[in-house]
Every structure is written in structure tokens, then in C-alpha cells.
């Protein structure tokens, strides 16, 4: 099999189909033929995940497909990233995002889906889990030098924690250099405005679009999700 357009289309399709075995197999075939790993991400996996993300946004596919696609994407990029590193290159992240479910809530799935989808769209995502204390959010943002903070809850009572985290960020003088996006079943635009969040992600696809807009990566994200730079650039 030649590494051509047809090959990349097939690779994209493995993401759409959620077929991890076929994805890994195709990547190995490609790498054996000295395929450029960057191109495999750009023209193959990336195209696939964008299609799934768009379909999800439009209600064509649903959660299981989205999560499985993200999972295949992760497995594929892990192999390709290794190759990119071996070539002395580095993939530049579109931004660093800390994400977690706020204190008082232990619902994991919604937040994890958003984390996965952001990650496969080229962001560096630090998922700090569930039932996260205010202080833990602050520390994670500091420690990771995050560009964006995502907070989630499925319940109504823990909503207030989101406001408290934002207040604390202001207190610590960290708010100005940080974008904050909130999400979860009870979160409305009105509520987000009230507590001073920058945006609401109404679903995973929406979260990716809003984060893109907040970090100014929207165009890059939708057209060419993967920016590659040499190691020298990063130093």
C-alpha cells in the first residue's frame, strides 16, 4: 500500500469508525514505508477527528462514537509522536488546559469527554479529576502555567464552587492571563456571565470551538489542527 491520499483517507476513516486495531496497523504500514508522521496526523487522523467532531456538533453521531474516535486518535498520535520525537522534532501544543469536575460532584464522563476531544484537537490537557477543591484548581493552573481552565458539574449545588474558583483566581492575580470556560447540565450563559467566566461549552464540540475562540486558535483548529515546530523553536 502506497502512502498516498487513499491511505490518508483510510487512516481518517479508522478514527471515524472507532477502529483502533486498524488504525495502529495502518500507521505501522505507513511508518515502514518512511511516511512523514506529521502528515499522517494532519491529513489522516486529524481529518477524521474533525469530521467526527462536526458530526457530533450536528447531532449525526453521539457520545460513544465521539469517545471511541478520540480514543483511536490518542492511540494513533501516541505512536506518531514517538516517531516525531525520534526525528528530533516536537509537536507544538495549541495551548495548555486544566480541566476538572468541581467539589461536591463526582460525575466524570462529561468532563472526560471534553478533555479527550480537546486533547485530540491539539491541546495539552491536564485532567485533574472529580470533586476538585478550589485550592487544587488554583495550584494546577499555577503549576501547569495553563492558558485555559475548564470546570464542570452535572449538579446544581456545586455550581457555586465555579464562582468561588474565579473569585480566588482574581484574588491571586491570576485571572487576567487565564481564560475560563465552564460547562455541565445546569450551566447557562446567564450563569457564566454572572460568575465572570469567559464562555460556556454546551457540549464537547462546542467546548472545542469556544476554547479555540478564547485562545485565538479557532482558524488553525478547524483548517489545520496540527502545528509542528522544530525543537529549536521551542527553546
Amino acid at each position: 500500500m502506497a502512502v498516498d491520499q487513499e491511505y490518508f483517507d483510510k487512516l481518517a476513516q479508522t478514527v471515524i469508525d472507532g477502529d483502533d486495531e486498524e488504525c495502529v496497523r495502518l500507521i505501522k504500514v505507513g511508518l515502514d514505508k518512511d511516511m512523514d508522521p506529521v502528515k499522517a496526523i494532519e491529513k489522516g487522523l486529524g481529518k477524521g477527528i474533525i469530521k467526527v467532531g462536526d458530526d457530533f456538533g450536528e447531532g449525526v453521531v453521539f457520545l460513544p462514537e465521539l469517545i471511541m474516535a478520540a480514543d483511536v486518535m490518542k492511540q494513533g498520535t501516541a505512536i506518531l509522536d514517538e516517531k516525531i520525537k525520534a526525528q528530533g522534532l516536537n509537536r507544538k501544543s495549541l495551548g495548555k488546559i486544566v480541566i476538572g469536575t468541581v467539589k461536591g460532584d463526582i460525575h466524570d464522563i462529561g468532563k472526560s469527554v471534553v478533555a479527550s476531544v480537546l486533547q485530540v484537537n491539539g491541546y495539552d490537557v491536564v485532567d485533574i479529576g472529580i470533586d476538585v477543591e478550589i485550592e487544587t484548581f488554583i495550584e494546577a493552573v499555577k503549576e501547569n502555567k495553563a492558558d485555559c481552565l475548564g470546570m464542570s458539574t452535572l449538579l446544581t449545588l456545586p455550581l457555586q464552587v465555579m464562582g468561588q474558583v474565579i473569585d480566588k483566581l482574581k484574588e491571586e492575580g491570576m485571572r487576567d492571563n487565564l481564560k475560563v470556560i465552564v460547562g455541565g447540565c445546569p450551566v447557562t450563559q446567564e450563569f457564566a456571565d454572572e460568575i465572570g467566566a469567559d464562555a460556556v461549552g454546551f457540549d464537547a464540540a462546542d467546548a472545542v470551538k469556544k476554547v479555540g475562540a478564547l485562545l485565538g486558535t479557532k482558524q488553525v483548529l478547524l483548517k489545520e489542527p496540527w502545528q509542528i515546530s522544530t525543537r529549536e523553536d521551542n527553546v
Binding site: 453521539f62 457520545l63 460513544p64 463526582i106 460525575h107 466524570d108 464522563i109 472529580i130
Partner: peptide
Amino acid sequence: IELTTHKGFTEEFLEAMY
């Protein structure tokens, strides 16, 4: 058994949505 934090739940849930 608390499902939300059960390690097998997400996978079972996704599979069961089909």
C-alpha cells in the same frame, strides 16, 4: 456500589448506548 466512580462504568455505559 457507587457507579460514577466505578472503574468499569464509563466503558460499560458507552457500550450500552448502542
